[in-house]
């Protein structure tokens, strides 16, 4: 039932857009790390090498992508591979974590208090048909429930 990952097709605009984001984004990340380092690792001197490193990286990848499309599309592909990697880590690591540690205890509690309809004792009944609530006004049709 899950959607297969759609292959991102690199077009000129998308590649250029990513180039600009890298050109601006990587130096900002560099600055951020520089600050982190200053306060948490060595609070004596600013280590601007980190900023420089990130910036060169950003200029190289971002600038390169803007100038050369072929280079840009490989950066684009790589970037999206990274994204799908992060995506799968979140999905396959965090979701199971969440399911067992948060969702399961909560549902257990609900089940014990009799809120879950799937675990209620079968009541002897002569019909499984349910009444449909027809007190709808037309506004209901703009709602998603």
């Amino acid at each position: 039932m899950s959607t297969p990952k759609q292959l991102k097709v690199a077009n000129k605009d998308a590649v250029r857009g990513l180039g600009i984001k890298l050109l601006i984004g990587l130096p900002i990340s560099g600055l951020f790390w520089t600050i982190i380092f200053y306060f948490f690792v060595s609070n004596e001197s600013w280590n601007f090498k980190i900023l420089l490193f990130f910036s060169i990286f950003g200029i190289f990848l971002g600038g390169g992508s803007i100038i050369n499309f072929a280079f840009g599309s490989s950066v684009y592909q790589l970037w999206h591979k990274l994204i799908s990697l992060i995506d799968s880590i979140i999905v396959w690591l965090f979701l199971p974590f969440f399911y067992y540690l948060v969702f399961f205890p909560y549902s257990l509690a609900l089940r014990l208090t009799g809120k879950s309809k799937f675990n209620q004792k079968k009541i002897k009944t002569s019909s499984y048909w349910r009444e449909i609530d027809n007190s709808k006004n037309n506004k209901r049709y703009l709602q998603q429930f």
Binding site: L18, G25, S29, W33, I83, S84, I86, D87, V91
Partner: peptide
Amino acid sequence: LLIILGGSTYAPFIYTL
């Protein structure tokens, strides 16, 4: 929210942070 961010173009930036 996390998943949407994780799947966006900005994800690698955010995770360098």
